[in-house]
Design a protein around this nucleic acid. Structure first.
Lengths: 130, 130
DNA sequence: TATTGTTATACTCTATAACTATA
DNA sequence: TATAGTTATAGAGTATAACAATA
């Protein structure tokens, strides 16, 4: 099961990055934008927890995204230590492309499977996440 | 689903690497040894296909594993261009520890789930791998 | 004193291209 | 000519520790 999990994740990432190659973003950059896609701002720590990276790693990722005009770094009201990451208009558009690609791939691969299999898979994935 | 998949993979790798920290191996090194665990020799290309790495990446990984006495590089009969990767006795023992840790984690997390959920999960993972 | 984010450092992973030795 | 593996190079991800600003 765990080996299949790794394989499936790897294959999925391969397909996604191939479909999104025109965006010219690294996997970490795609991951960060995808997590910000709902339009809600997040601090560096919150984003790090969501994408599974340390603040020290995110600094470089966010530097590149900021340089390309996809995000902005602002202050969080109430705590001037925290940095609030927000998508720019360009960032929102790019994040939408990523979200759409994920939804499309998911719909394609799950199309032929019974609902019970999908439910079972979600149960297993959540058990593994704990 | 795909987001859950990424999360589950990430969480699983975190737990495994924490449990195997005493081995002092990087994720790629663990992956390579785990794939060689059945004791069958593989060429660099075959191993690369199995673990999802390029030969150019594996060279460095294999260098370190060889330096630590866990694998040997030999010639493949019939084609002297190919390099056959084989586990040493130490490598076999280390690979067994990795295999055991994976089996244990899998047994623990799937223990409370109905067989139908596990079957459904396998079906979904295989659909995603295609 | 503790926390947030950044910087510094060192190592690992990845991708591309060039190289060698074999085929 | 083509293939298997290595080397060279540069960019990107990771971990640890140290640091400045703020709490």
């Amino acid at each position: 099961m765990i080996l299949e999990l790794q394989r499936a994740t790897h294959a999925t990432l391969q397909v996604l990055s191939a479909r999104l190659v025109d965006l010219d973003l690294t996997p970490s950059e795609l991951n960060a934008l995808g997590n910000l896609a709902d339009g809600t701002g997040r601090t560096v720590s919150e984003l790090g927890a969501a994408v599974g990276s340390r603040p020290t790693t995110l600094t470089g990722v966010l530097d590149r995204l900021e340089r390309r005009g996809l995000i902005t770094r602002g202050a969080r009201p109430g705590d001037r230590r925290a940095v609030l990451i927000t998508l720019t208009d360009d960032g929102v558009a790019t994040a939408a492309v990523i979200t759409r690609a994920i939804a499309d791939l998911e719909a394609e691969t799950l199309a032929g499977l019974p609902a019970s299999a999908v439910e079972g898979a979600l149960a297993v994935l959540r058990a593994l996440t704990r």
